[in-house]
Protein backbone atom coordinates (compact mmCIF):
# COMPACT_ATOMS: atom_id res chain seq x y z
CA UNK A 1 0.00 0.00 0.00
CA UNK A 2 2.98 2.27 0.43
CA UNK A 3 4.06 1.79 -3.20
CA UNK A 4 3.55 4.81 -5.39
CA UNK A 5 1.89 4.40 -8.76
CA UNK A 6 1.86 6.87 -11.62
CA UNK A 7 -1.68 7.41 -12.85
CA UNK A 8 -1.61 7.83 -16.63
CA UNK A 9 -5.17 9.18 -16.82
CA UNK A 10 -4.15 12.43 -15.08
CA UNK A 11 -3.36 15.43 -17.31
CA UNK A 12 0.11 15.43 -15.72
CA UNK A 13 1.03 12.18 -13.96
CA UNK A 14 1.20 12.53 -10.19
CA UNK A 15 2.86 10.13 -7.71
CA UNK A 16 -0.42 9.23 -6.03
CA UNK A 17 -0.33 6.67 -3.23
CA UNK A 18 -1.99 3.40 -4.20
CA UNK A 19 -4.89 2.83 -1.82
CA UNK A 20 -6.44 -0.17 -3.54
CA UNK A 21 -5.45 -2.45 -0.66
CA UNK A 22 -6.81 -0.16 2.08
CA UNK A 23 -9.82 -1.73 3.86
CA UNK A 24 -13.28 -0.59 2.79
CA UNK A 25 -16.13 -0.54 5.33
CA UNK A 26 -18.91 -3.08 4.79
CA UNK A 27 -22.62 -2.26 4.77
CA UNK A 28 -22.98 -3.13 8.45
CA UNK A 29 -20.22 -0.69 9.43
CA UNK A 30 -21.63 2.05 7.21
CA UNK A 31 -25.08 1.64 8.76
CA UNK A 32 -23.67 1.59 12.29
CA UNK A 33 -21.97 4.94 11.65
CA UNK A 34 -25.42 6.55 11.41
CA UNK A 35 -27.36 4.46 13.92
CA UNK A 36 -28.32 6.99 16.63
CA UNK A 37 -28.37 4.36 19.39
CA UNK A 38 -24.93 2.88 18.78
CA UNK A 39 -23.60 6.37 18.04
CA UNK A 40 -24.91 7.63 21.36
CA UNK A 41 -22.99 4.85 23.12
CA UNK A 42 -19.84 5.80 21.21
CA UNK A 43 -20.40 9.47 22.00
CA UNK A 44 -20.48 8.67 25.71
CA UNK A 45 -17.39 6.41 25.44
CA UNK A 46 -15.43 9.01 23.40
CA UNK A 47 -16.12 11.80 25.85
CA UNK A 48 -15.37 9.50 28.78
CA UNK A 49 -11.95 8.84 27.22
CA UNK A 50 -11.36 12.57 26.80
CA UNK A 51 -12.26 13.15 30.45
CA UNK A 52 -9.97 10.29 31.52
CA UNK A 53 -7.15 11.88 29.54
CA UNK A 54 -7.92 15.31 30.99
CA UNK A 55 -7.89 13.99 34.55
CA UNK A 56 -4.68 11.98 34.05
CA UNK A 57 -2.88 15.05 32.66
CA UNK A 58 -3.39 16.76 36.01
CA UNK A 59 -6.25 19.24 35.50
Amino acid sequence: MTEQNIQPSEPKPQPVLDLTRAPMPNVKTLKARYNPFSQFGRFVAFNYRIMKMVVSSGH
Binding site: A32, F43, F46, N47, R49
Partner: peptide, 20 residues
Protein backbone atom coordinates in the same frame (compact mmCIF):
# COMPACT_ATOMS: atom_id res chain seq x y z
CA UNK B 1 0.89 6.07 23.68
CA UNK B 2 -1.90 4.93 25.95
CA UNK B 3 -3.85 2.29 23.99
CA UNK B 4 -6.86 2.65 26.29
CA UNK B 5 -7.48 6.25 25.19
CA UNK B 6 -5.74 6.67 21.81
CA UNK B 7 -8.41 6.14 19.17
CA UNK B 8 -9.43 6.72 15.58
CA UNK B 9 -13.12 6.27 14.80
CA UNK B 10 -15.67 7.34 12.20
CA UNK B 11 -19.33 8.09 12.82
CA UNK B 12 -22.10 10.54 13.46
CA UNK B 13 -21.17 10.82 17.14
CA UNK B 14 -17.91 12.57 16.24
CA UNK B 15 -20.00 15.33 14.67
CA UNK B 16 -21.92 15.70 17.95
CA UNK B 17 -18.62 15.84 19.84
CA UNK B 18 -17.21 18.56 17.59
CA UNK B 19 -20.40 20.64 17.96
CA UNK B 20 -20.29 20.17 21.73
Amino acid sequence: RNLATTRGEIGLYGHWSKLM
